[in-house]
């Protein structure tokens, strides 16, 4: 999914230490390897473990990227930590035809009913997958699988090289978690206008 200007803007919500920046970096590197223009960056400032943090990715199919400002009107929002849903306004500025991708045990329908989110919603229980495959509840790489499934921003195979470079011998397990999240992601289309 890209917007009218051929640009995909993704904002990641995580907590300091959960690796939101790494996810953003991997996705940008995969896009760059596909000869797209892409960049990734963290919310600027001092890092505090456990505090809500942001990371950003822009992917442009044709035009080089010039804008370096933080993304305030994202096409896609990714939520690594379901606990953030009630303490951070994660949908802030999210485009009407955008999508929110959440690490949650809940179905997209449940999320929509609880939070009234109208744009498309995708969910996957990334914590469970990460616990089972990686042995730790760190969901950043797992959630990249969900993002690739929901947005088709890059090909799954393009992420493997950046993953190997970043994680070395742990790359295979992270790839497995990513693939399982890709398979298990459930997507609910945006709510039709006029319906409640």
């Amino acid at each position: 999914m890209v917007n009218k200007s051929g640009l995909l803007e993704i904002r990641w919500h995580g907590r300091g230490g959960q690796g939101a920046v790494t996810s953003a970096e991997l996705l940008a590197q995969a896009a760059i390897s596909e000869n797209k223009y892409a960049h990734a960056f963290p919310s600027f400032g001092p890092e505090r473990r456990g505090a809500p943090v942001l990371a950003f990715v822009r992917i442009s199919e044709k035009e080089p990227l010039r804008i370096r400002a933080e993304i305030t009107e994202p096409d896609v929002v990714v939520v690594l930590d379901p606990g953030l849903l009630t303490i951070v306004n994660v949908t802030s500025g999210l485009k009407k035809d955008g999508m929110i991708i959440i690490n949650s045990r809940k179905t997209p329908e449940q999320i929509r009913a609880e939070l009234g989110i109208k744009p498309a919603i995708a969910t996957v229980d990334a914590t469970k997958i990460a616990r089972e495959i990686l042995g730790v509840p760190i969901t950043n790489t797992t959630m990249v699988g969900a993002v690739i499934r929901a947005t088709e921003a890059v090909k799954m195979e393009s992420i493997m090289e950046p993953l190997k470079h970043r994680f070395g011998r742990l790359a295979d397990r992270n790839a497995a978690a990513m693939k399982r999240a890709y398979d298990e992601t459930v997507i609910l289309e945006e709510q039709a206008i006029g319906k409640v």
């Binding site: 970096e25 940008a28 760059i32 960049h39 960056f41 963290p42 600027f44 400032g45 370096r68």
Partner: peptide, 10 residues
């Protein structure tokens, strides 16, 4: 600072 130093880009 940040706008360049912290950018991952091609």
């Amino acid at each position: 600072g940040f706008h360049l130093s912290h950018m991952i880009e091609p």
